[in-house]
Design a protein around this nucleic acid. Sequence first.
DNA 1: CCGGCGGTACATCGAAGGATGCAGTCGCGG
DNA 2: CCGCGACTGCATCCTTCGATGTACCGCCGG
Lengths: 216, 216
Amino acid sequence: MTIRVVVAEDQSAVRAGLVLILGSSPEIEVVGEAADGEQAVELARELRPDLVLMDIQMPRMDGVSATRQVVAEGLADVLVLTTFDLDEYVFGALRAGASGFLLKNTDAKELIEAVRTVARGEGLIAPAVTRRLIAEFAAPRPVRSPDAPDPAVLDVLTRREREVLSCLGQGLANAEIAVRLEMAEATVKTHVSRLLGKLELRSRVQAAVLAQELGV
Amino acid sequence: MTIRVVVAEDQSAVRAGLVLILGSSPEIEVVGEAADGEQAVELARELRPDLVLMDIQMPRMDGVSATRQVVAEGLADVLVLTTFDLDEYVFGALRAGASGFLLKNTDAKELIEAVRTVARGEGLIAPAVTRRLIAEFAAPRPVRSPDAPDPAVLDVLTRREREVLSCLGQGLANAEIAVRLEMAEATVKTHVSRLLGKLELRSRVQAAVLAQELGV
DNA sequence: CCGGCGGTACATCGAAGGATGCAGTCGCGG
DNA sequence: CCGCGACTGCATCCTTCGATGTACCGCCGG
């Protein structure tokens, strides 16, 4: 059984080279060529290849979006091929569902081997980027929410106010905060009131939520 | 410049095989052999090799812990080698800072190539596990905090109470909740009071914090 | 020296929150 | 049908909260 491949790459010379390389292997058959992302998705829909070899930089629809589309529709596995190993490309492509990520400096033999590997249902990543992938994976950066409660807002608060805010984030009542911070309950109220004003909040509940989001 | 390697593997026969394979390459020199994790760390400290080839299953100190130690002290890169591609091994090893992850069914030539790759500062992962790594990476599962506020607690709440809790999590006041859920403020208070009791909380603030942690 | 300013602190008072008692509704097994 | 329990709903009463006014301290520049 041959591996049916669609090659998506906007530079025709490079595309021709890829086709040539892949065609040189008896078990690989290039069944289609696309010059942009949209064409790649269309061809994948029509031809149902085993694999799409996808460039990142392409007109009309970039490779990452095309990859997302192809994977979402379950049309084929995607092996991404690009010149630059920028993080945004790598992570973007992988999040989009790519099964592999190669750099264009890969030589012919490795490329063919890569296609076979991915077709086997395995994954493959260029060694040069593997390390950064591992690093990214190993250090799960705290999920900075898109709604991004800016930590800078804390700058407007005084030390005491930040301490009180921290207590609020733990769900403490004014009396409890007073004990913990060693001041009168009335004073706690003052600080609460002040920080509510500065942060433009309307109740301690909102302050607590904010404190949570900020991880205070 | 030769690549100086420490081999850590408890089964002496396997270890001998690895040493033989690595030694067959002119640019690789096996400078030490360890039969358990502690020895591996000690040897790494003494010999400062370029790379430690580390088995996962070892007595006294498992490979993951040893890897963490070696990497933390900046002693050497670590290439993990194991028989089983269990997720816990893979992810554990990578989080511990391993630069590569190979299965023992890797043949001699690939092993040597892998050592060279890692020594170059690149990363390397067995194709069979790469796909799962990608999947794990692409689907950033919500970081289940270790303090684990059990989502099951919500089971004790009625539909209405959950709705109110959700509003609390957004920092709304009783009057606002009343409008949103179309009931009297007095009723909102009832629900708040009830859910506080069921969840063993002492104020709406704590409820709001909990709602946050649960992502309600 | 002193007047202003920011941080901290406390007291007072109206508003919001929370506990409690009770009533209407629905579904279920006797 | 009836009793029972779970859910939802509202009203009353006491507590906590939050806004506001005031006061003390330390610091700075005039």
